[in-house]
Amino acid sequence: MSFIELDHTADVLLRVWGGTLDEVFADAARAMFQIMYGTCDAGEIVRTVDLEAEDIDSLLHDFLSELLFLTDAENVVFCSFDVDVRGNRVSATLKGEAFDPAEHSGTIVKGVSYSGPGIVKGDEGYVLEILFDI
């Protein structure tokens, strides 16, 4: 997995990197679910997400916010993220399991902020810094 948690006193600041935007989106989602539920490896429940936004940073924000909505509304913990980013559109297939308080332990992510530089393209791919309110 290509992400680390950076020190931030109040919230959770993540750095995610990947060769493609697909990887960056998937790893940001994986990291967010790890904060909320710890690890998870099953995947009977399948959901799809299709979104479009004005720019890539807004798209990532909307994508993660949509996952927060789905997990909270349906009590599903997503474990695998098959993501396809094309321009300012994302299509993703998510696999997960029903939330189980005995299995899943973490903290609630209240929201995805617009703080930080967003997605930056470098020589070896993309780097993202993103702040979650917890």
Binding site: S58, D62, S65, L68, F69, D72, K110, G111, V112, S113, Y114, S115
Partner: peptide, 28 residues
């Protein structure tokens, strides 16, 4: 949490609509 998320998106556009210049996108 959802109210904040939903309206942050609307207010981002409003910031541009009303020509408000801000040093941080999160202050939408």
């Amino acid at each position: 949490h959802q109210v904040c998320t939903d309206h942050l998106k609307v207010l981002e556009k409003a910031t541009r609509k009303y020509n408000i210049s801000l040093p941080d996108r999160q202050l939408a």
